[in-house]
Amino acid sequence: MVRHFLADNSLGQLLDWLSRFGALHGPIRTAEGVEVFGPVQAEDDLLLTCRRTLIPPKKYLLPPRQVILNYTAADGYTLPDETAPQVILFGVHPCDLQGIAYLDRVFLGDRPDRLYRRHRDAITLVGLSCEPDEFCFCTSHENIPRNADLFLQHVEHGFLVSTGTSKGEGMIAGLEPLLSDLNIAPQPLSENRMMTRLREVAKNGETFPDSPLWEHFATRCLSCGACSVCCPTCYCFDVLENGALDGTTAERFREWDNCLFRAHGEVAGGTNFRPDRRERFHYRYLHKYLGFGALAGEPACVGCGRCRVVCPVGIDLTELFTEGGDARP
């Protein structure tokens, strides 16, 4: 496999080059000290060794709130005239790349979602290798996810640059002066025990109905929904419509919803199919680890570790898999 070597001190030139193709975004630290994906003003802003951003890059593909239809009395409902600006998303870790691959399967499957498609097409993914910590587990930190247009792997004094798509190849054409060819053997797949267990669980459709952990989770959970907000593959959305104060126009939008919220399972008249937290956990578990609809049998968890980091009461659904044997990495 041919990869290119990019020296540390040439990174700035690479970033300048990539900026020609769109607005450069990557992991940065906000004034409040939060690590997020955001616009990169200068090379120094980039957090090259960031463990994980608070919110995954799904926000670029599924904005938290997105207008899907406009209404006027004269024209009825019409599609919004929205354009998605070109974004170069730099520093996407393998877990988040896998998260995007999962969302692509959901939103670009049989019936492609027009708005998702628009945002997805406007994004160039530049992956970056990372170091796992005690919260995360993935199988891919040494393998290049296929959906990265470009992928940078940290090595001593620089990065190994590889291309995953023809778009990526086209982008680095002309950068030869910065890159030197290296012949490197593909690295063997390092299978993580937790991820192996997770795949087993999904394949067998295990639901652990008798586990005392469900009750334990349900009594501690605050229903804050943070685990879902920060999940790279959580995409449940609500659809709402607001009339404008002029009385003749309206906007219909979709916005992130959350299966930990009580209203998620409610129907007209107030009946709720998931009235208590235990049932909502079951729902979350089913969707996250066993999959819904066409993706049944495939875990949606990419092992990024965000839900374990953010839960204010330390709930970790993967404990269900490790009861009786510690598979925690």
Partner: peptide, 25 residues
């Protein structure tokens, strides 16, 4: 079955019945 079908095409995930969708299954 009654569920809160928001999108109708198995995307919004409100209407899941187990691993099935009320709106399309």
């Amino acid at each position: 079955l009654e569920r809160r079908m928001k999108c109708g095409v198995g995307l919004c995930c409100h209407c899941a019945v187990g691993q099935l969708f009320c709106c399309c299954n």
